[in-house]
């Protein structure tokens, strides 16, 4: 082998490794920064970081992200209540009636939602929900987030259901099961881990989204959403708080943004870990 070929090969390998490491390097820097800056803020705030409202901007006090954390949990819950049934039933329709026109339309249109910038979902919900209602609300935010969740969960669940071998459906029908029984007792049961994974991925997406909330939940920095009646009130959420506080000049609010970022990252990483544990499929 001529020397220049070998040299070129070495250079290529070295450059490839360097670029690949460069691709993931930001992850470490981001995680390290979030852990160090956010961690010190959470340690400083202690329990009150999780429970208190933000302190007055520019004051020496820190306060906490209580309302935003509670808002994020409410949004996650209400979004799931809307989005999960919608996504599961849509996925079931797509798989069960795959030959039909509606199934094909539903598959293409829901998966296209994946490529729609999420800020436009916020725009849509602002125009068709917030404006007619005359106010921002957690409910409007949940509707927007349910739309964000839809394509992720539909496509995962769809794949999980498609992955169930035909023979199990036949077995179900052969003992006289109705289609509903085959779907809910056999197919969903066998695909349960895939279905759970699809739901978890949808929830992770929803909890981390900011743009759909910009024009839907308003901002209610100090008030806690305590019960269902607060769904019709404006609220706050961790990602939104980070976005807004990051743009302020107040150091105590910027600190809260870092603390919230760590909290949000930990929530997302926890869901991912759960997913990893789940994704050992049902043994067939």
């Amino acid at each position: 082998m001529p020397d220049w070929r070998r040299v070129k090969d070495r250079l290529f390998t070295a450059a490839t490794v360097a670029l690949a490491l460069l691709a993931v390097a930001p992850l470490f820097h981001i995680l390290a920064t979030v852990v160090v800056r956010g961690g010190s803020v959470i340690l400083r705030g202690g329990v009150s970081f999780f429970t208190d409202p933000p302190a007055y901007p520019g004051s020496g006090e820190l306060g906490g992200v209580g309302p935003a954390l509670l808002g994020t949990l409410w949004l996650g819950l209400v979004t799931s209540l809307i989005g999960v049934p919608l996504a599961l039933l849509t996925a079931i329709y797509i798989v069960e009636y795959r030959e039909g026109r509606l199934a094909r339309v539903a598959r293409v249109f829901t998966s296209s939602l994946l490529e729609v910038p999420t800020v436009l979902i916020g725009m849509l919900v602002f125009l068709v929900v917030v404006v007619p209602m005359g106010r921002y609300s957690l409910a409007a935010g949940s509707i927007a987030l349910a739309i964000v969740m839809l394509p992720y969960t539909v496509s995962y669940v769809e794949r999980a259901l498609e992955g169930v071998p035909r023979t199990y459906r036949e077995a179900g029908y052969s003992i006289g099961m109705t289609r509903a029984q085959v779907v809910f007792q056999v197919v969903m049961g066998i695909a349960s881990r895939g279905v759970a994974a699809g739901i978890l991925i949808g929830v992770a997406k929803v909890l981390s989204e900011t743009a759909p909330l910009l024009f839907t939940i308003g901002s209610a920095r100090g008030s806690y959403p305590t019960g269902p009646q607060s769904l019709l009130e404006p609220g706050d959420a961790l990602p939104l708080l980070i976005f807004q506080f990051a743009q302020t000049p107040y150091s105590n609010w910027q600190d809260l943004a870092w603390g919230a970022a760590l909290l949000l990252t930990l929530i997302i990483l926890a869901i991912f870990t759960l997913l990893r544990l789940l994704f050992r499929e049902v043994k067939l």
């Binding site: 690949a20 691709a23 993931v24 930001p26 992850l27 820097h29 981001i30 920064t33 979030v34 992770a204 909890l207 981390s208 989204e209 900011t210 743009a211 990602p239 980070i242 976005f243 990051a246 910027q254 943004a257 870092w258 970022a261 949000l264 990252t265 997302i268 990483l269 991912f272």
Partner: peptide, 24 residues
């Protein structure tokens, strides 16, 4: 491990990228 890192990058909230981008 490398693939997991890339996966985490996909799932990391965009607002965290934004905060890091603005501050660092």
């Amino acid at each position: 491990a490398f693939v997991s890192m890339i996966d985490v990058m996909t799932g990391l909230p965009t607002i965290v990228y934004g905060l890091w981008g603005a501050a660092v």
